[in-house]
Structures are given as C-alpha cells and as structure tokens.
Design a protein around this nucleic acid. Structure first.
Length: 573
RNA sequence: GAUUCCGUAGCUCAGCUGGUAGAGCAUAACACUUUUAAUGUUGGGGUCCUGGGUUCGAAUCCCAGCGGGAUCACCA
C-alpha cells in the first residue's frame, strides 16, 4: 500500500465508509445474475424491442452526467458500454430518496461496479439506453481510473497511452482501452483453433517438464534454478523438443504441446524472456508432408480469427492459403544477393560476409556464417508465407541428413512478413549420427558459443531403443499472434510482458511510528508531511514538527486531537 | 549492452534565456427531468522520478542513479 493517498483516494475511502454507515455493503457476497449485455442490447434492441423489457446487467460506471433529479451514465460490461438513465423517483419510489440523492450522486465514483434492472428504450436523441428501475452496488473502486473520453466521431481524448503503465497495470489498460481486449481474444482464437485442428487429426496434447536437468532442444542461454530436496541445479526449459520425441519413442503417433519456454537473453520488440510455443511431432511423416500440414493449419487458424485466409499486417496483405513458395536456403541467398554460397568453405564464407559488410566473429562456424548472410540479405524480403528449406548441417543438430543433397538437412523454416514463424524437420532418428552431431555442438561450445546445444544422454538412450521416422514442427505463438493481430511489439500480445521491478516506495508500517508514541491517527499526517521513516522524523526539528502538525491539522480540516507538546517531544528521544 | 528521447496533479500534457508550479478532463460544492467530449458558477489537489552539484535562487543548467520508449547490437 502506498503511503500517502491522493485526495481522490481519501474521498473514495470516505464514501466507502458512508455506504457502510447507510447499511449498504460495498462488497456484497451474493451472486448477481445478469440477463443482458451492452453489445447485445445495442445490436438487437431496435430489431427486437420486446425482448428487452426486463433486463439485468452489471458493470462499471465509466461516465456520469447528472442533471438534478435525472442522470445518465455509461455502464461498461465485458462486451462494451451502454448508456443507462436514472430518474430519482423511479429508483426511489417512496419518500426516501437516499439511493439517488446520496448513494448515486455522492457516494458512487467512476469505476464502481453496479448492477441495474430496468428496460431498454430510445432517448430523445435516439440513443439506446437502459431505464433503470433498481440499482445496487456490486463493488466499490478505491483508485480512480484514467478517464478516456470519446466524442461523436469516435475521436479519443486524453488517451491512456503510457506503455509503462499499460503493461504494468494491464487491468487498467484493458478497462479504459477495451479495444485492446480484441488482441487477446484473437490470441485465444489462434491457440484454440490450432488445438482444434490438431485434435481433429487425432494428435494428442501432452505436457512435458518445464524444470529440466539438461536444457536441450534448442540453442539459447537458460534460466537456472535449484531444487532443494534433490540439491540439484535445474533449468527452465528453452525447448521441449527432446521430451516430445521421447514420447514418439514411447509409441504415440502424434503429440503436441502448447507451453511457455524460457530464454535468458535480450528483450526487445520480438523477444520476451518467457514466450509461448507449440511443438508437434507426427510419426511416419517427413518435412515435405509437414509443409502441407502447416499450410492447412495456418489457413484454418486465419479463418478462425478473421473469417478469411487473408490478414492485413501493416502495409502488407498476407494470404495464408497454400501452397506457399519454397526456396532452398542456398537458392534464396542466390536470389537476393546473386552469390552462390553452396560450394563455399568456411574461409570463402568469411570473405563473403566481409564483402557484404556483415559482422562476424571467430566463434561462428560454417552454418552460422550462412545464417548471418541469410538474416542480413534475405529475411526481410520474405513477405508472403515462404518456406526456406534444406539448411546446412552445421546449424541444425537435430534434423535428419538430406535424402539426396550432401551437407544439408531436411529442414524448413516458414517466413512471413520478413519474420520466422515456424521451424520443422524430418527428425533425426539415427542415434549414432545424433550423438556425433551433439558432440560437434560441444566443440562449438568449446569455441565460446554460449548457445551451443548440450549433450543429453537420456535422449540418446531413447533414440537407441528406436524412434520411428518422424516430422516435427515448432511455431512461435507470440509472433504468430503478432501477425494475426497486426501488432509489431510482443508486449502488445502478452497480457503481462516482463518489466523491470517497480521502484519500491519507502514502506514503513504505521506500527513503527506508534511504537515511539505517535497516535495512530497522526501517522498518515506525518507521512503526508514527508516523514516516511522514523529516521526521517528524528532528523527533523522537534519544534517545527510540532508546529507543522498544527498547520496540517488545520489545512486538512482534521477532526482529531492535537497531541500535547511533551508527547511530540518524546517522539524524538 | 550502445545510442537517443522522455519522467511535472488521479489521467493527458504545457511550463521560453533559471525568479512564488499551469491547462483540460477527473475530483469537491451549488444549479439543472432525455443528456452524451452535457452545461454554468465556485473551490481543492503537486516528493516537478531519486540523489548530488552550480547559483542569492533550479521543474528548468551540469553529473550520477532509477524507470520507460525508440533505434541498433544480441537472439538459428
């Protein structure tokens, strides 16, 4: 709790107490069953007025226009806002006008939850409104929300836009900027439609460990933690690939998992330390099959979100209907740079990078150098969904060697709008080859590559028992959602993006002040005067503090007893 | 991590070459029975992010720190 309450917060707490004094519970326990929603009323009242003669709805009061004994307010529920009309003598049919004159006009604040019963009608200006016959308080709001106003043209005034506050206090953001809720509704549709697609195909949703003794399956720095009972180091997973493959070894034909991954790396517009991915593995398939599956799946997802297979992303209209363009890694570099890197050795690649003004360092192997060229020169050109296929073996230790092309693996990545969205292999199931490839990763690690993949002996043991030919796919859900919702920062598609901790207010409990003899009712006054710790108080001049207490008492019109001077002096001993 | 911009009332923002801190909304009081960015009148509300420095005097200038944004780097 913050130390000094703002004027408005103090007033709201006083209103809360006055409600209680009137015998009104500001936080009632009873259920309040609604029968109507704002959006439905606005959409359907005019075509079907008879069904809105008795409505019950609930939500926050978001604006009020009080005109004597009648008032308009806007009620916001989960679907939107609808205007409500309150007339004193309607909600207070008897002599007692307290509910209107005191409760509604004085003690309610913007942001309070109320429940209303009444009927829908059209005002003289033609706005669909609810004529309230009964009103009850469902929850009192003690902190004022930012007020965002909209005029007739829909222009927003005093918008609540500070990204820091929007991300730290997402509950405020989505309350006053409800249009952002659609991003998260669409996020949910992306995941649920994809899950539907997988389930319809007969593949099984599974869960695998997040706490892993070996961080395998991807190349990234992990978060490290410690288990006390086992007294062992554990990692938050950077990928779940190796566990899902163990389940293919176990005899499932298709398994998939939606889940959080954790990578201890930089944060920016497209990276959050924890992010969501889906991985799916299907036995007896290869990466050619997987391409067709991805096309069907993403078209299904796009239709689920937008109703059509096309989505507008910035300037670009992106069509998720398959089939997508396919380019091999080498051909894509040839296409966009005119350089054929397919036969180059490491030395030649280094020279090519230098010629193209691409920064490199000594830890980079052949695969990484090619990837640098690709990232710098090709990626941004891949706007419509495009498969980049057949990667150099050095950068892909978990994929099967290409069936016909030497030095390559059966892998594709799907690029959309210049960004990687999906990654898939014909999975490596030759245990001896797999062991060698992981050993090569250890060499890279020895050269200083912090992200080289770790050895996982249990995974190799599983492969030795035999894994059927399998194709696997990973999709970054956050980036897919960014595409589907036309957002260009990952923070906009995460409810609670990672932030640095807020600066802590210097917190001191009232007890500390009470212990040195300060009467409880004077503690907030001292806080208001800037004394938030005992040390700060004791550093002050006792006579000045005593005088200022009197001044504050007068200024704040406090109805509390002034402590005697000796008592104040005693605080300083 | 680098560069750069920003941090002032509950919110959105002004605040010039340093001289008693401002507006709109919100809030409080009064008026008002179909308003709608309601209106009219009158009030209250501030750790100018934090800590140093320069100065007679700092929201303003300088330094450091904290937090955020953008760009870049990193991130297959």
């Amino acid at each position: 709790m913050s130390i000094a309450l703002s004027e408005q917060e103090i007033l709201r707490r006083e209103s809360l107490q006055q409600l209680r004094d009137l015998g009104i519970n500001p936080y009632p326990a009873e259920a309040f069953d609604v029968t109507a929603f704002a959006q439905d009323i606005k959409d359907n009242f005019e075509s079907n007025p008879d069904t809105y003669k008795h409505v019950v709805l609930a939500g926050r009061i978001m604006s009020r226009r009080i005109m004597g004994s009648a008032s308009f307010a806007e009620l916001q529920d989960s679907t939107g806002r609808v205007q409500i009309y309150l007339k004193r003598d309607d909600i207070c049919p008897g002599e007692d006008k307290t509910l209107y004159n005191t409760v509604f006009k004085k003690l309610l604040d913007l942001g309070d939850y109320v429940g209303v019963k009444g009927y829908v009608f059209l005002t003289q200006t033609g706005e669909i409104s609810v004529h309230v016959q009964e009103m009850s308080i469902l929850s009192k709001s003690l902190k004022p929300l930012p007020v965002v106003r909209r005029d007739d043209e829909g222009n927003i005034h005093d918008a609540f836009t500070d990204p820091e506050m929007r991300y730290r206090q997402r509950y405020v953001d989505l309350t006053v900027n409800p249009e952002f809720k659609q991003i998260f509704i669409n996020r949910s549709k992306v995941i649920s439609s994809m899950r539907d697609y997988f389930n319809t195909e007969g593949w099984m949703e599974v869960e695998t460990p997040i706490l892993q003794p070996v961080h395998g399956g991807a190349a990234a720095r992990p978060f490290t933690t410690h288990h006390n009972t086992l007294d062992m180091q554990l990692y938050l997973r950077i990928a779940n690939e190796l566990y899902l493959k163990r389940l293919i070894v176990a005899g499932f034909d298709g398994v998939y998992e939606f889940g959080k991954m954790f990578r201890n790396e930089g944060m920016d517009r497209t990276h959050n330390p924890e992010f969501t991915s889906v991985e799916i593995y299907v036995a007896y398939k290869d990466y050619i099959w997987m391409m067709a599956m991805v096309e069907a799946c993403l078209e299904h997802v796009t239709r689920a979100v937008h109703g059509i297979p096309v989505v507008q992303v910035g300037e670009n209209e992106i069509n998720f209907e398959g089939p997508y363009e396919k380019l091999s890694m080498y051909d894509s570099i040839l296409k966009y740079t005119g350089i054929d890197v397919s036969a180059m050795d490491e030395t030649a690649l280094r020279k090519t990078c230098t010629d193209l003004a691409i920064e490199i360092d000594n830890t980079m192997g052949k695969g990484k150098l090619i990837d640098e060229i690709f990232s710098a020169k090709v990626e941004a050109n891949l706007i419509q969904p495009t498969y980049i296929t057949d990667y150099p073996i050095e950068m892909t230790p978990l994929a099967k060697k290409h069936r016909s092309k030497e030095g390559l693996v059966e892998r594709f990545e799907l690029f959309v709008n210049g960004k990687e969205i999906a990654n898939a292999y014909s999975e490596l199931n030759d245990p001896i080859d797999q062991r060698q490839r992981l050993e090569e990763q250890l060499v890279l690690a020895g050269r200083g590559d912090e992200e080289a993949m770790a050895m996982d002996d249990d995974f190799l043991r599983a492969l030795e028992y035999g894994m059927p030919p399998t194709s696997g796919l990973g999709i970054g859900i956050d980036r897919l959602v960014m595409l589907m919702t036309n957002q260009h920062t990952i923070q906009e598609v995460l409810f609670f993006p990672q932030m640095r901790p807020e600066r802590k207010a210097k917190v001191v409990t009232a007890d500390d002040f009470i212990k040195i003899g300060v009467p409880a009712e004077w503690v907030p006054v001292l806080n208001k005067m800037g004394f938030n710790t005992i040390e700060e108080l004791k550093a002050a001049n006792p006579n000045k503090v005593f005088n200022d207490l009197g001044g504050m008492r007068k200024k704040l019109k406090l109805d509390i007893t002034m402590p005697a001077k000796e008592i104040v002096m005693a605080w300083f001993e």
